[in-house]
Computed example of a mutant assay.
Amino acid sequence: MPERMRVLTVVNALALAGAEKFGCELAMSLSSQFEVQLVALRDVNLSQAEQLRARLTDAGIRCYELHKKPGPSPKTLLQLRRLVRRFRPHVLHTHSTSSDFYGGLLARANPKIKWVSTLHNKLVWPRFERLGRPIDRTLFRRADAVVGISKQTIDWAKQTYALPQEAFHVVLSAVDVNKFQHANSDKETTRRQYDVPADAIWAVMVGNRSPFKGVDVAIEAIKSLEQSERSTLWVTSIGGEHIDPAYSETLRKTLKQQPLLPVQLRPPSGDIPSVLQAADLFIMPSRMEGLPVALLEAQAAGLACVATSVGAIGEVIEDGVNGLLVPPDSPAALCAALSRLVNDTKLRKQLASNATEAAEQRFTHERMAKQYTKLFEALM
């Protein structure tokens, strides 16, 4: 019987957002085909980690949490080296900056391992631009494959890394479409949990609150709506505040000064599928994005979406077909788009229907897992 391929996935943390969530869910999708183990470098949210740990265990994936502290860590590198010696992976699969750094060092020390890095956005160590980029480029000379979650991301990678063209691949992000279409949700109960008025049009934003996510832009846009439109709308921002607590505090002060504004800030939810199933609109006012999983989830849930035309969002939304696109940092444009969706029920339903169809055709876990399986097998 041929030996099963062993894949070691390295993510920054066990978290229900972004590259971390993507890496964990991809590992679970591949676990029926390969022997997969997963390493989480640091701690972010203990309750989220507990949820993901249970799901990984159910999928037969052994998970290691290294509890890395901020900054470079020789101890973390030694821990990873021991895991590699024990597991002997054929493929080392990393996701985003920290995991790429340690994965690159491991790959250089283990030439038989095939190193695959999935890039989730175009930023590489933005706080350490002068030092970070040269180190990053040096490490990536060892990469066997670089996967971009969007065409935009891989176009940037081709200009950045000195690798042969055949090393670059595009595999679009994916979500569990079935889960978001058939969430076991009592919509009325979910809406009551979020204090949504009975007849309100409920719009949600999902993502850790930081200046990049543009929640402040959404608040300014909502302030500019007509009074009749504001009274119809209820907006909830769901996300963590650990990235920039000061930004979240500024948002709270703004809302305290506007007590009649229909906007609330809520912590991360462990049941986003039920929230999206109960909502009517999805808002993504980001100043910067890669290919945001939260937007794909909203599309899968069949929500009319309005988003900024940044990053690879334009690869997901065709303006006026399966969502509305607005320029970033423009409260006026976002206000106009929200006004259209609040006042035009037919448009809202048409965008929602087209969003579901697009998600079913382009963003399923099955499609993504097949592409990664083909890539890993081709590297052997």
Rank of each mutant, 00 (worst) to 15 (best):
Q299C: 15
G320R: 11
L324Y: 12
C305Q: 02
E315K: 11
A300C: 13
L324R: 14
I317H: 03
S339Q: 09
Q299H: 14
L295A: 06
A300Y: 13
A307F: 02
A278T: 04
A294R: 01
D329T: 09
R287T: 07
F282A: 04
A278Y: 00
G302T: 08
M284N: 15
A307G: 03
N322Y: 02
A337T: 06
G311M: 08
P327E: 10
L296N: 02
A337H: 07
G311V: 01
L341Y: 08
A312N: 09
D319G: 12
Q277M: 08
L281T: 00
F282E: 02
L296C: 08
M284T: 11
R287S: 04
G314H: 09
I283D: 05
A301W: 07
I283S: 03
R287K: 14
T308Q: 02
V306P: 04
A278V: 01
V275D: 07
L281A: 00
L334C: 10
G320S: 13
P327N: 10
G323D: 10
S274H: 10
D280C: 01
A336F: 08
R287M: 04
A304Q: 08
E315L: 08
A298P: 13
A279D: 00
N322S: 06
R287C: 04
A279K: 00
V310W: 09
C305P: 09
A336S: 15
V275P: 10
T308E: 02
L281K: 00
D319P: 10
A279C: 00
A307S: 13
S330H: 08
A298I: 14
A307Q: 00
V306A: 02
P292R: 03
L325I: 11
E297T: 11
M284E: 08
S309M: 05
L324K: 12
C305H: 07
V316M: 15
L303Q: 08
A278P: 05
L296A: 03
L295I: 03
P327D: 12
G311D: 09
A298R: 14
G302M: 11
E318V: 15
G290W: 03
L324Q: 13
P328Q: 12
A298W: 14
P285I: 06
A332Q: 15
V342R: 03
S274M: 07
L296I: 10
L341K: 08
R340I: 05
P285W: 09
R340K: 14
C305M: 05
R340N: 12
P292A: 09
V306M: 01
A304Y: 06
I317P: 12
M288W: 12
A337D: 01
R287I: 00
L303R: 12
L276Q: 03
Q299R: 13
Q299K: 14
Q277I: 00
I283E: 04
D329L: 09
C335A: 15
V306D: 04
I313Y: 02
G302N: 07
S309G: 01
L325Y: 08
V310E: 05
V321E: 13
L334N: 04
G302E: 04
R287L: 14
R340A: 08
N343L: 11
A333S: 13
N343R: 15
G314Q: 13
V321L: 14
V342M: 07
D344P: 07
L338E: 00
A333F: 04
G290N: 06
E315D: 11
D319C: 13
S274I: 08
D329R: 14
E318F: 09
